[in-house]
Amino acid sequence: MSAPASDTPGQGLSAAAAAGEPEALHAAPLTARSPLARLARDFCASWPALIGLVVILVIAVVAVFAPWIVPQDPYDLAQLDIMDGTLPPGAESYAFGTYWLGTDVQGRDMLSAIVYGLRISLLVGSVSVACALVVGSAVGLVAAFFGGSVDSVLMRIVDIQLSFPAILVALILLAIFGNGVDKVIVALIIVQWAYYARAVRGSALVERRKEYIDAAVCLGLGTRRVLFRHLLPNCLPPLIVIATVQVAHAIALEATLSFLGVGVPITEPSLGLLISNGFEYMMSGRYWISFFPGVALVVVIVAINLVGDRLRDLLNPRLQR
């Protein structure tokens, strides 16, 4: 599994969550503070998760402000010089200064390329997850609320979708769509929405049977209002967990697809494509072209997973009630 690019991450999650994390039960604090404050305090109790969070924040800031931080726009060919190609880390160039992480064959500063690559990876990860979350939640809510044949048709589609490994679906889709950041995002939405649909439906079915929904319906509130104002908020906690981990999955999946040559275009390389481009030079000693982007990719994914793992422990639906 390009690890996180799990085909069935939902499975891993739900299986682990369903099997219960019993000790977490005992850890559930009974103090009467606001839930958010309690969450924040519990979260910070785990230092790996805290480190993860800090790393994510730092990376996010760097990625957002990349154009003002890095020395070179790696996508502007006019700023590159192939005579500076494949220089080792720390090499000095008269025109440019110091290439701290070396250059690739086009003379692209690897540090700048990695920061810009991070931007693309984070963009693809977060946008695709956000869109998939919206689509999936809507489908899940509708299925749970209306039930009957609507439910069974929608869930059959979800089943079918989930029975295909994400990597395979995305690979075929992108082979058909062609390269492009937008196309990768669309493909990732298509392979991800079903996880949320299933998760939302699951929690919504539980909530649906509760009195407050009956009460809302009896009050004559509109369907949409019941769905989004009452049902949805109560289904959110497990979604937050899935979405967090799923951002890591999406980033890894994008990297894998780009590595296979069906992801982002070569002129705007993401981390995965940088690794792929550098691969053939790695064995002949020019490790930096591939190695540093790889490290950046792994750090991002590990950080997100650390946070997600902690959130899963804290937001486990079982210990909420």
């Binding site: 690890a3 690019a5 590595f259 690794i275 790889g294 792994v298």
Partner: peptide, 18 residues
């Protein structure tokens, strides 16, 4: 195990080869 979840398959392969 979190690390195991996080390492992309292709990157791991490359590192093992290296």
């Amino acid at each position: 195990s979190i690390l195991g979840f996080s390492l992309p398959n292709f990157w791991l392969g490359l590192m093992l080869i290296l």
